[in-house]
Simulated assay, not measured.
Amino acid sequence: MSSRRPDRTGLVAPAVAVLLIAVLLGSLVGTWPPFVAVESGSMAPGVERGDLVVVTDTDRAPWGDLSTAADPDAPTRLGEAGDVVVYTVPGAGGRPVFHRLAFPVDAGEDWTDRADPELLAGDCDELATCPAAYDGYVTYGDANELYDQSAGIAPVVPDEWIAGKALFAVPDLGWIRVGIDAAAARYGGVATGVVLVGGAGLAGGVGALLVGRLRRGRRR
C-alpha cells in the first residue's frame, strides 16, 4: 500500500523568493541590507515615515560619488538637491541617521561661514562641532529646523561613518521592516526569524493549495 508524499515546496517558495530578491538587489547596489525603513518624519515630504528606501554604496557605478546640496550640478534625490545618506555615529548607541548632505568641510574650518544662518543655533564659538575636527560633511533633515551639527544630533560626518546613499523610496513598504525590527528587539532575532519563515511558508502553502484547487476545477 503506497501513500503519496505531500509536496512541501510551496511552503518555502515565497521565503526563498524574497531572500533571492534581496540578495540580487544587494549585489546590484553594493550594500547589505540594500534598503532602510524610515522611522521618523525628518526627511518629509520627500520621504515619509514608513517608506522603504533602497540604498547603494557611496561610490557604486553608475550613480557616482557623493554629492552635496551645495554642489552646482548635484542630482535631485528624494525631492531636493544632494545625496541623502545613511550614517551612524560610533559609540553613540543610537540608530542610523538618514539625512541629506549639506556641504563638505575641511579639518579646522569654521563651517558656519558657509552655512545657512536659519539652520544654525549659534556661531562657531557656541557650537561644540565647530570648527570641524576633521574632514567630513554637514548634514540635515529636510524637515528639521537645524543642521544635525547644530542640533546636537551628530558631529561633522566623515566618509567612514556613511554606510550608503539613497536611490529611491517606496511609500509605506517600510512599515514591514519597522515591525520586524520592533519584534526582534522585543522577542529576539531568532524567534522573529522563525515566525517570519513560518508565516511565509504558511502563506505559500495556502496559496499553493488554492492554485491547485483552481487547476483541478478547470480540468473537470
Rank of each mutant, 00 (worst) to 15 (best):
M1F: 07
R4M: 14
P6T: 09
R8W: 15
T9K: 11
T9S: 14
L11P: 07
A13S: 06
P14M: 09
P14W: 01
V16T: 06
L20H: 00
V23A: 15
L25H: 00
G26R: 01
S27F: 05
S27L: 15
L28W: 13
L28G: 02
V36E: 15
V36F: 09
V36Q: 06
A37F: 00
V38E: 13
S40G: 08
S42C: 11
S42Q: 07
M43C: 14
M43L: 12
A44N: 09
P45N: 14
E48I: 00
E48F: 03
R49W: 00
L52E: 05
V55K: 04
T56I: 03
R60V: 11
W63V: 10
G64E: 09
D65Y: 03
S67H: 15
A69V: 00
A74T: 08
L78A: 10
E80S: 11
A81E: 10
V84M: 11
V84G: 12
V86N: 11
Y87P: 09
T88K: 01
T88P: 00
P90Q: 12
A92F: 01
G94D: 08
G94L: 07
P96A: 09
P96F: 04
F98V: 14
F98P: 10
H99A: 12
A102K: 05
A102C: 11
F103L: 12
F103A: 05
E109F: 01
D110G: 09
D113P: 00
R114L: 10
A115L: 01
D116F: 03
L120E: 10
D123T: 07
C124R: 02
C124Y: 05
D125R: 06
D125K: 02
E126C: 01
C130H: 02
C130M: 03
P131A: 08
D135M: 04
T139R: 02
Y140F: 08
A143V: 02
N144C: 03
L146A: 02
A151S: 14
G152F: 05
I153A: 12
V157F: 07
E160W: 01
W161R: 06
A166K: 04
D181S: 12
D181N: 14
A182F: 13
A182R: 15
A183G: 02
A185K: 07
G188W: 08
V190T: 14
V190Q: 00
V190Y: 07
T192G: 05
G193Y: 04
V195A: 15
G198D: 13
G198V: 03
G198P: 07
G199N: 04
G201F: 09
L202H: 07
G207V: 02
L209D: 14
L210D: 00
L210K: 03
V211I: 13
G212C: 00
R218C: 04
R220E: 14
